[in-house]
């Protein structure tokens, strides 16, 4: 179960991205780091299953996602709850500039179904292609595309409620009237 220098470095390089994805699943950096820890242990224990030359990052993401769904979530009682702990933990994160803006966005993100949020993050933030995301989520490419589109549309709707002021009621009205 030893890691070569190359594997060590490659896994190291994948960790920041993996953490960010874990946060989007767990809603909380501490739980996310626990999830990443367990994922790394699983990956190392099964390192002989990894085919050198293939996408290591995608492999790690797959392990993390599966682990989250099968064990981690049940144990930690991660429940999809748009108004509950998940949202609260996201908005309570000590953060960054423009945290009010982020809080709104995070609230909207939390309202998406898990599948859609995950697909959106993989394609829109983690930088995977639709094909890679489909492999990670073990579904068809068309399914990923559909989830991403639904996620984007839903977020657009949710944020439009807040952002309509930017565009002015007339423009929004015009949009609704002329929209196909």
């Amino acid at each position: 179960m030893a890691l070569s220098r190359g594997m060590h470095d490659d896994i190291l390089a994948a960790i920041p991205n993996l953490r960010a994805f874990a946060v989007s699943l767990c809603g909380n950096i501490d739980r996310a780091d626990d999830l990443v820890q367990e994922t790394l242990l699983k990956a190392i224990a099964n390192i002989d299953r990894f085919q050198p030359g293939t996408n290591l990052s995608a492999w790690l993401f797959t392990i993390l996602r599966n682990h989250f769904r099968s064990e981690f979530r049940k144990r930690r009682r991660e429940v999809e709850d748009a108004d509950g702990k998940y949202t609260e933990s996201l908005t309570a994160e000590p953060s960054q500039v423009g945290s009010i803006e982020f809080a709104e966005f995070k609230r909207a993100l939390a309202q998406l179904p898990q599948d859609q949020r995950e697909a959106l993050i993989l394609v829109g933030a983690s930088g995977f292609s639709y094909e890679e995301a489909a492999n990670i989520c073990d579904c068809a490419v068309g399914t990923i595309k559909s989830r991403v589109n639904r996620a984007r549309n839903r977020l657009a709707e949710l944020m439009d409620i807040n952002g309509a002021a930017d565009f002015g009621p007339d423009e929004a009205m015009r949009g609704i009237l002329t929209g196909t």
Binding site: R19, A20, S24, Q96, F102, F105, I121, G124, A125, S126
Partner: peptide
């Protein structure tokens, strides 16, 4: 926004 949030952690 998504990438900005994400990149903060990365």
């Amino acid at each position: 926004k998504l990438r900005s949030m994400y990149d903060d952690i990365v």
